[in-house]
Design a protein around this nucleic acid. Sequence first.
DNA 1: ACTTTTCCCTAATGGCTTTAGGCAAATCGG
DNA 2: CCGATTTGCCTAAAGCCATTAGGGAAAAGT
Lengths: 189, 189
Amino acid sequence: MARAGLTAERLTRAGAELADEVGFAQVTVSALARRFDVKVASLYSHVKSSHDLKTRIALLALEELADRAADAVAGRAGKDALVALADVYRDYAREHPGRYAAAQYRLDTETARASAGVRHAQLTRAILRGYDLTEPDQTHAVRLLGSVFHGYVSLELGGGFSHSAPDTQETWIRTLDALDTLLRNWPAP
Amino acid sequence: MARAGLTAERLTRAGAELADEVGFAQVTVSALARRFDVKVASLYSHVKSSHDLKTRIALLALEELADRAADAVAGRAGKDALVALADVYRDYAREHPGRYAAAQYRLDTETARASAGVRHAQLTRAILRGYDLTEPDQTHAVRLLGSVFHGYVSLELGGGFSHSAPDTQETWIRTLDALDTLLRNWPAP
DNA sequence: ACTTTTCCCTAATGGCTTTAGGCAAATCGG
DNA sequence: CCGATTTGCCTAAAGCCATTAGGGAAAAGT
């Protein structure tokens, strides 16, 4: 019988697409097998488990996101860089909600350390070069920016912002303005 | 045979405890049945489905959280209120990670509208009375604060902050300082 | 061409969800 | 009180998902 040509990479990519279509939580070994028109057990030659599959999708998403982020930050500085980076996260989440959710998948310590996750922190730290912050404050600021980006995006995606009043695009712009102002006037301890 | 005395409320409370112990994602009708030493099917007289159970736990968490928040904000203003409210979220998430995750469970529109979720927005808006913001800016600020609180807490809980350098408590304090500064110097459009 | 490896399949187990239908316990009406 | 009704938990069963064991055929290597 003809072979389907499965590989861990193809499964991961298809899993990412599936996540965007039906939600990361609904990504299942069975659903993926159906998508390849193949029996479920066949996937287990390529991925160790459901957890392994999800981890691979998470790593893919983290890498895509870091690539986009690196691209956006390159050649920009200050508020320009800040906005570009922030938009990468927000746009990615809107274009690829399933992948964005995957990027939040809890990785064990060593997997996380080897992931593109570390690049994210570096990129965020990079845009802070355009602002005048002392070393420990940079770390605080990195965490703050991460919190705002992630928090905003996940609330917006989850419908946490009532679809009322000022639209979310306006809030986003004002939020980035506010962050820029804040970084330029970072309060002393 | 003796009855177990199940009710939707007891199941919900036990489900919340279970969530804190093993994670919200691991809360399952089966696990809950085991906890009550009862057969799985028995629970279906009290909750409609797994989704119904999770929704109830989410609503419980949202209410507990809103109660604590209301308590914290009462009699405080300005930065004092800001810090108190923020600490409620963070402390709740640390004490009850499963419940906190439950509070993030996606509710359908009408359930959300009837939930304590709306109280949260009101409470956040309330602390902004201590700052001088125009009406539309209040909404933006509510969303920003929600983003920071949620983003920070979920990153911290998920291990998103490498356990390195300055500890997270310090970052938290500096983050709240920063937010206070920001609200007092809210940039014009 | 033949051997070895790789890939996908069948078969089977066990867990979770959900529905249908039954018997006993609690509750109620006279 | 006691029979009738309602309520609560059970057994049974079907369906979906995850995972493992072992087999046979296609692809790759010699």
